[in-house]
Simulated scan of single mutants.
Amino acid sequence: MTFSRRFLPALGAGLCAAPAVHAQPRFPNRPIRMIIPFAPGGGTDLQMRALCHAASQHLGQPIVIENRSGSSAILGAIALANDRAADGHLLSQMPSNVFSYPLTTRNPPYDPLRDFSWIIQITGYVFGIAVRSDSPFQTLAELIEFARTHPGEVSYATTSVGGVPHLTTERIAEHFGVQLTNIPFRGGTESPTAVLSGTVTAMSGSGWAEFVRQGQMRALCVWAAQRLPAFPEVPTLKELGVDIVQTGAYGFAAPKGVPAPIIATLHDAFRRALTDPAHLAVLAAADMDVEYLGPEDYAASVERTVALNRSVLGRLGLLAQ
């Protein structure tokens, strides 16, 4: 093929004017940081480490764990809200307090409905109500009946005000028309200690399972959809007539604005990691199940959770003014 002399300059000009095409950098192109807003060695830390190790094999980059405990487990959420890069290399596990803390605080440091890109929901904690093994209360019905005839005398330990254990226990109390007194403690180990020492009547949430196995505590109910294989004698709330299923499900997120292809890459890698045998073994040891939700369903679940928290906190008079 030949070109006329008149066409060649035009062809050259056209080539010069064509926009340069740059290949998009591969994601991830460096290690990913995963914030876990709890201390090393706890149940969430062990589960997330197993999951991240499996996911790193699919992503081709290591996932570096950063433990940032304290401040009601919201330090990871704050870090995401302040991340300007929004390139998918910073992630955080998002516990239930992330959804209630902004509702109880003036000028909150983030908005759970606007500041995050939700990636995947993973699993949920084993929640329930437990008492000391020598407690006079053999069943939840007995505890509730005592609370009805002795207003204000039944106390329960939780890890925070406004968290899932607190709000769920208040929903249970509302269902039965009784008053239960929340006593919040700082860490997960303090609630069982308070029960065993007799400081409180019961504890709500997680952290009681091993004490039940050892015979030091008695579980009165679990909040899962069905009885736990590890505790087949313990009824669910639904069996006791309370229409509540609550596991404190959690997953992780990235900062708002992370491009959709990156969200998809992260989701797919962690979705595959969920069923890694080492990760499933960690879940089984903690009596936890996979509770998977993809990005859209996870975001919708967050909206429902925030709305429910707002309603319960409003009834308790705990919404920020």
Score class of each variant (00 low, 15 high):
A249R: 03
W223D: 10
A254H: 01
G248M: 04
L220E: 00
K256T: 12
P235H: 04
V245L: 04
P255Y: 00
A253Y: 03
T236Y: 13
D243E: 09
A230Q: 11
A249D: 01
T236S: 13
A225K: 14
A224I: 06
R227A: 11
E233L: 11
K256A: 15
V245T: 09
P232L: 04
L240F: 14
Q226K: 09
A253C: 09
P235C: 05
A230S: 15
R227F: 12
F231P: 08
F252E: 05
G241N: 11
V234G: 13
Q226H: 06
V242N: 09
L228Q: 07
L237H: 00
I244W: 02
K238L: 15
E233Y: 07
A253N: 06
P235Y: 01
P255F: 02
A224T: 08
P232Y: 00
D243P: 07
C221A: 07
P235K: 00
V234S: 08
A225H: 13
P232C: 03
V242K: 06
A253G: 06
A224H: 09
G248H: 02
C221F: 05
V222G: 14
L220C: 07
Y250K: 13
A230C: 12
L220G: 03
K256L: 15
V234P: 12
L228V: 11
I244T: 10
T247Y: 07
W223I: 09
V242F: 02
L240E: 15
L228T: 05
I244R: 15
C221I: 07
P229F: 13
W223K: 07
T236A: 12
V222A: 06
A230M: 13
A254Y: 00
L220S: 03
G248Q: 03
D243R: 06
L237T: 01
L228S: 04
V245M: 04
E233Q: 15
Q246I: 06
V245E: 08
G251H: 01
C221Y: 03
K256M: 14
F252C: 12
A253S: 05
V242G: 09
G241F: 08
C221H: 08
A253E: 02
L220D: 03
V234C: 12
A224P: 05
F231S: 10
A253R: 00
G241W: 05
A230I: 11
F231A: 09
